[in-house]
Design a protein around this nucleic acid. Structure first.
Lengths: 178, 178
DNA sequence: TTTTAATGTAATGGC
DNA sequence: GCCATTACATTAAT
């Protein structure tokens, strides 16, 4: 499945070679063993102390300079990988929050509807109270024509429910209902 | 300010062997003029057709290969810059949404409180209805000890208001209030 | 098969 | 030592 590119074909200089003996050649590509060891070492400790560098270089048969370069490049790679991970994490958070937000919005709508319903349910009581008061004041009542939409209490509508705090700002509750 | 390198190519024979004939040694860095021109050209057109490549190379005194490589690297840089920009944009969106979310949550709390208040306001009416029913059933009423928290209707609490749909699921509205 | 875009990796030089 | 830059290699896609 995976193309087994052998590690020997690319690296012309021997793995044991200290410094490339070929003058004009640039050596490329470390062997998989070298990379594995470097990777393992990097995982253990991101920072490369001079001592470790020397040790690694000797173990891998590489110039210290190359080991140091490898670590630097590895760190750089690490950094951009981090950026990508951060993006993915943030994206997930965003999506999650968005879902939650929509859920709350939905709940909000239901609550508004509920408040509306409850308010309408309170209208007869308010009406009753009002009628009682009126009955006491002028002992004359005609209430048959008064529907909820023409009640003394203004009919609640969407506008009133837009700002929750003001929903009942305009109305004083009858004392017998408080 | 900038070290003026000559633009003659370097490069030795590569395994894949490109057109490399100049024996000149390692010259890295391009001059600012070269970079400026490449940059300008890149802004105009991200894609590098062979013709443009030839023209640019001639204009800059660089091997075509080097121009091509520069464009490749420039694209790569472009990409990671894009990732960073995307992150920033997403972050801003997230913060904005979070603020909105919290605002809605706050409104939600107020609505719940409102529903709670309205429900309590409805209790006397419900109580009254219940008392009337009881009066008809057993003609015996003691209601003085009945506070809102011990009303026949369960007292609404936070739990009941957590899920809006169930807020009144447990209670049947008295027919005279519907 | 040839070319190239995209990606990965090694190396250089400046600060 | 960290960083951006340059260069080369490799793989996928055409």
């Amino acid at each position: 499945m995976d193309p087994n590119y052998d590690q020997e074909s690319r690296s012309r200089s021997a793995p044991t070679g200290e410094i490339d003996n070929q003058p004009a050649e640039k050596k490329r590509r470390l062997t998989v063993e070298q990379v594995n060891m470097l990777e393992k070492s990097f995982e253990e400790e991101n920072k490369l102390e001079p001592e470790r560098k020397t040790e690694l270089a000797k173990m891998l048969g590489l110039p210290q300079r190359q080991v140091a370069v490898w670590f630097q490049n590895r760190k750089a790679r690490c950094k951009i990988m981090k950026i990508e991970r951060d993006y993915d994490v943030l994206k997930a958070c965003y999506d999650s929050l968005l879902a939650k937000h929509e859920s709350v919005i939905s709940e909000n709508e239901k609550l508004k509807s509920k408040v509306f319903t409850l308010t309408e349910m309170l209208l007869p009581a308010a009406h009753q109270t009002q009628r009682n008061l009126q009955g006491k004041l002028n002992s004359k009542g005609d209430d048959e024509t008064m529907s909820s939409s023409t009640a003394l209490v203004p009919l609640a509508n969407d506008h009133y429910f837009t700002n929750v705090d003001e929903t009942f700002g305009w109305w004083v509750w009858p004392s017998n209902l408080m």
